[in-house]
Design a protein around this nucleic acid. Sequence first.
DNA 1: CCGCGGGCCTGCGCGC
DNA 2: TGCGCGCAGGCCCGCG
Length: 277
Amino acid sequence: MPELPEVETVIQGLKPAIEGQFLNNVIINRYDLRGGIPDSFIQDTHGSRITHIERRAKYIIINLSRDIVIILHLGMSGSVRIYKDKNEYVPRKHDHALFDCESGTRIAFEDPRRFGMLYTAPAERWQAQAPFNTMGPEPLSNAFDSSYLRTALKKRTSPIKSALLDQKLVVGLGNIYVCEALHRAHINPLRSAQSLNQSECDVLVPIIKEVLNEAISAGGSTLRDHKQTDGSLGYFQHSFRVYGQEHASCSQEKCSGTIIRCVQAGRSTFYCPQCQL
DNA sequence: CCGCGGGCCTGCGCGC
DNA sequence: TGCGCGCAGGCCCGCG
């Protein structure tokens, strides 16, 4: 599921369901995610109260009493399901972790490809450790403005597409929203990052915020069978103008171009060669 | 230091 | 129907 809007949608589902609750029981079905769930995970979390859930980049940070945080990343294929009553739980093959609360609510973390991450860290230290200590600003924060972007891009020789995917430059963006933002900003994804001038950055920054905000409002994007925490579907995938739209005609007004797909750094890029210059 | 390519996994849809 | 292939929203590592 996971670019910023999808992670944000998951958190909005989790908050009312489990904030303030005690974790009665934590069940780990398998520990061998990418990176591995630490052996001490259950001991670290069992019996704690969930005080506050927040997002940093594409990570879900679950603050617990006893000054511990659970750090959860959904990888490429991770999702979270909420059951008001654990007796309604329907097991799925790749449910790696279950979190049972005192209220009877059960949270299931499923991740078929196991690219996700689940571990704990001390509350006062997690921000100072990798990967958080080298992350760029949140794209929806005031720190991410056009002068910051212009300065950051000046040092980059890579294509603008790759630069925007680099979480050290700005966090939260993934393949979909980078493609969509560059299309709306009429910027060719193959151009070198440092070739963007100030006025192009002035255009791009608000467009990145706009695309992310629209996607959050739509409940994120549901690709393949991924759903929100309550089982409903996100809708933003219907608003994609370039992502997955190879051979379609460009949606920009007065543009007669056709969307093409190419590969950059091993990932698909979709763009309109006619209006993205 | 930087940028790229490969690897990590499973599942799905496509063409034959 | 069955099978192999290419593809997938992220991130880390090692190489040049």
